[in-house]
Structures are given as structure tokens and as C-alpha cells.
Amino acid sequence: MPFTHDTEVALAEAAALVNTLGDDGDSLETRAGLDAFLARYPFSGRVTGDAEELRTVRRLRERLRAFWAVADRDEAAALVNALLADCATSPYLSKHDHYDWHLHVTHPDAPLGMRIGAEAAMGFLDLVRSDDLDRLRTCAAEDCSDVLVDLSRNHSKRYCDTGNCANRAHVAAYRARKRTSA
């Protein structure tokens, strides 16, 4: 099932936020780390730049990681509902910058963590409704625990976007084939 642009962006942002705490450490330890994340994944609305905002986004990251460990749609739906309630969602249509009409689910003055959480919840909501939770995966590389969202048409994505996991795996497979044929 093809997803809307909003859903794909929300899921990619959620995975990217979860992956800020990975095998290489925590890239959100400082405000500069959050600024770098927001430069890559911009959110409209207010950004305070204070320590509480950073703490809130870091706590949200742990809540989002739970979606990659759900056992079934019922569990995922409960997580979505709790996140939507905690983020004080209030959906409305918006048109800004170079984007046509699209859905925002929190007020632009809501805290950044609430806006990120609400957008992520809406993305996960679509996965629950379409029974596509199997699109939430962990990287297939043995030395990587990053998460990914497989939005490919044939459900074939196996490696994360954060490192060179796919390239390393393909090179290793190529070298193994060469050793076997030699």
C-alpha cells in the first residue's frame, strides 16, 4: 500500500530520532545535536532551544523505539493512542512554505517534543490501520541495532540509512562469492 507523503516523512523522522541513540553513542547529548537533527528533519513551529526541550525530545525517542518491538496491532494501537493523548493533538489543515494542504496534528506553539510525537503517532497510526507493522524493522547488519522503516514496494529493505551497513554486507557477500569461486 502506498502511503501519503506525510506518513512517509513522519515514519522516517521517527526512525531517525530513534537512531540518534545507537551503537555509536548518543547524538542528542547536546543542544547542537538536536539542532543538527532539526536541520535535517525540520519541524514547523516554535523551537525554544532550552535544556527542557532537549530532555523532552530524548524521552520521546525512547517511547518511539517501543514501536519497533510491538508484538501485534493491538499493542501498537495502544501505544499510538497513548502518544496521541499525551501530545494533546488537535488536527487541522495547513498550507505553508512549499507544501500544499496537509495535516498538522498539534498547534505550532506546542512544545517540540509534542509536535514530533504527534506526527510520529500519525505515521504509526497508518501502519496499524493498513496492517503494515512488518515495515518496522531493525537493520539486518550483525553489528548494527538501528531501526528502519521499509517503505519499498516489495518490502525488501533490510539495512538502515544511518551507516554503510548495506554496502558492507554487499561487499562481504561479493568477497565470499569470489573466495568460493576461486
Rank of each mutant, 00 (worst) to 15 (best):
S44N: 05
A77K: 15
G45F: 07
Y41F: 14
A32I: 01
A69Q: 13
D35G: 01
F37Q: 03
E13K: 15
W68D: 04
L64N: 00
A51M: 08
E52A: 11
N81L: 10
R65S: 04
D23P: 08
F43I: 01
R55V: 07
G25P: 05
A85V: 10
V18K: 07
E53M: 03
D26E: 14
S27V: 05
G22L: 09
V57M: 13
F43D: 06
L64V: 11
D35F: 06
S27P: 06
V57K: 13
D23Q: 12
C87P: 01
L17R: 09
G33N: 08
A76K: 12
V80Q: 04
V80Y: 10
G49V: 12
N81R: 13
R55S: 10
L54V: 06
E75V: 08
D23N: 13
L17T: 05
D23S: 11
F67E: 01
D86F: 07
L84T: 02
R65F: 11
L38C: 05
A32F: 03
A77P: 00
V47R: 15
G49M: 07
G22V: 05
N81H: 13
S44W: 12
N19D: 05
A16F: 13
A82L: 12
V80N: 05
V47K: 13
G49K: 14
G33F: 12
D50W: 13
F43C: 04
D23W: 12
A16G: 06
A15H: 07
A39H: 14
A78C: 03
E29T: 08
A77Y: 12
A85W: 09
R31V: 07
G33P: 02
E62N: 08
R65E: 11
D23L: 11
L34C: 02
L34D: 00
V57R: 10
E75F: 09
R61N: 01
N81S: 12
G33I: 01
G33M: 03
V47I: 13
A15I: 06
E75L: 02
A36T: 04
N19T: 08
W68V: 03
V18E: 04
A66Y: 07
L34G: 00
S44G: 14
D72K: 10
G22W: 10
D35A: 06
V18Q: 09
A71T: 13
L60G: 01
L38M: 13
T48N: 03
E52I: 07
D50Q: 09
